[in-house]
Simulated assay, not measured.
Amino acid sequence: MRLYIKYLSIHLKSQMEYRTSFLLMSVGQFFIPFMVFGSLYFMFQRFGELQGWSFFEVALCFAVIHLAFSLSECFARGFDSFSSLVAGGDFDRLLVRPRSTALQVLGSKFEFTRIGRLLQSVIVLVWSVSNLPQIWSLPKLLTLLLMIANGTIIFTGIFILAATFCFWTIQAIEVANVFTDGGREMAQYPLNIYEKWVTRFFTFVIPFGCVSYVPLMYVLDKREGSMFFPMVITFGGVLFLIPCLLIWRFGVRHYRSTGS
């Protein structure tokens, strides 16, 4: 952790050297998802509800998934831009260092300008929670925090899988965006509005259902019963991350230098 914090400190200092650029990029990042949320707002203004879900309930789902994606983009950006390390031969240098390659790649790049997206997601989160009085209990607020952490881990796992393909393809494959950007757009709505096979795939294969559906049902009192299962299922992201790291290790063992 000391090494990771050192990486983080170095990148923060380098990005803050150009503060005006950092501020402008952060403001731009604030407005990028603004239009998406605007379309969500106007849709509910027109139709009132979405299969039994109110505006503030879906807004909560929106805030959780975008907050998780922004955190992952900020702190796991190294995997998202990993193809440049492979194509330039710089990954060879990481292999001779006495530290985990996953840790080094994780600390190779941070996008602190994502604070703009984080800020917008936090604003939407606070606004939606303040209009949903049933959430105001310690177990539900704790579940909400676990949902955000779980989503961050899931997006990080997808970035790791996409980076692993670079060992064979050199460049990142665009299909990975189906599960990162596409997954974010899909999971910002409750999963039960989609076809059953979509719900099952994004619950048992890529477990966005552990972020934006099952625990959300408990938090919003749409599911009766014990709080134990909804809180436990928020750890589904950890179960997803473990095979992602194993596949990463498999890719590292089969890596062949680009010869650069």
Rank of each mutant, 00 (worst) to 15 (best):
I158P: 00
Q120Y: 09
S72Q: 11
A162P: 00
Q120F: 12
T101A: 11
M35K: 03
G107C: 05
R249L: 09
S81Y: 02
L118V: 12
E73N: 12
P243R: 05
V36M: 13
V238A: 06
G116W: 04
A59D: 05
I148V: 14
G116H: 06
L239S: 09
G38R: 00
D221P: 06
V126C: 07
T101V: 14
V214N: 00
L95P: 15
G182P: 01
L161Q: 06
V178K: 08
F82T: 03
V96H: 10
V211A: 07
C210D: 09
S257F: 08
F235K: 05
W168L: 13
N150V: 03
L216V: 06
L144R: 02
V129F: 02
S9H: 11
V58R: 01
N150W: 01
L95E: 08
R2W: 07
L239C: 12
M43D: 13
G89Q: 11
I233A: 11
T156W: 02
T234Q: 02
V175F: 14
F112Q: 08
I247A: 14
L146E: 11
S84K: 04
K222G: 11
E224P: 07
V64G: 01
V205F: 14
M217E: 12
H66K: 04
D80N: 09
W53L: 01
Y18N: 15
T113N: 15
S72F: 04
E174P: 00
R99K: 15
G236E: 04
K6R: 12
S260T: 10
F42Q: 01
F37T: 01
E73Q: 09
A176Y: 05
L71S: 05
L142Q: 13
Q15I: 02
Q171R: 05
I123G: 08
L161R: 02
R46H: 12
S39N: 09
F250H: 14
P215Q: 02
G88N: 14
A63K: 05
Q51R: 01
L241V: 08
A63R: 07
L8G: 10
M16L: 14
C74E: 15
R93P: 00
I154M: 06
K13D: 07
E57M: 02
R46F: 10
M25N: 13
F202M: 10
L220G: 03
V232G: 08
Y218I: 06
L95H: 10
D92E: 10
Y4N: 07
H66T: 03
T164Y: 02
N150L: 06
W197Q: 09
V214I: 13
S72G: 04
I123W: 10
F155G: 05
F240G: 01
T258V: 15
G89C: 12
G28A: 11
G225F: 11
F155P: 03
Q188Y: 06
K13E: 04
A187K: 03
D90L: 12
C74Q: 14
F228A: 12
A59E: 01
F62I: 02
V126R: 03
S26Q: 07
H11Y: 09
L94H: 14
G259C: 12
G28H: 08
L132F: 09
S54Y: 07
G183V: 07
I242N: 06
E57H: 01
N131I: 00
P98I: 01
V232F: 15
F75M: 10
V205Y: 10
W168D: 14
S9Q: 08
P215V: 05
R223Y: 06
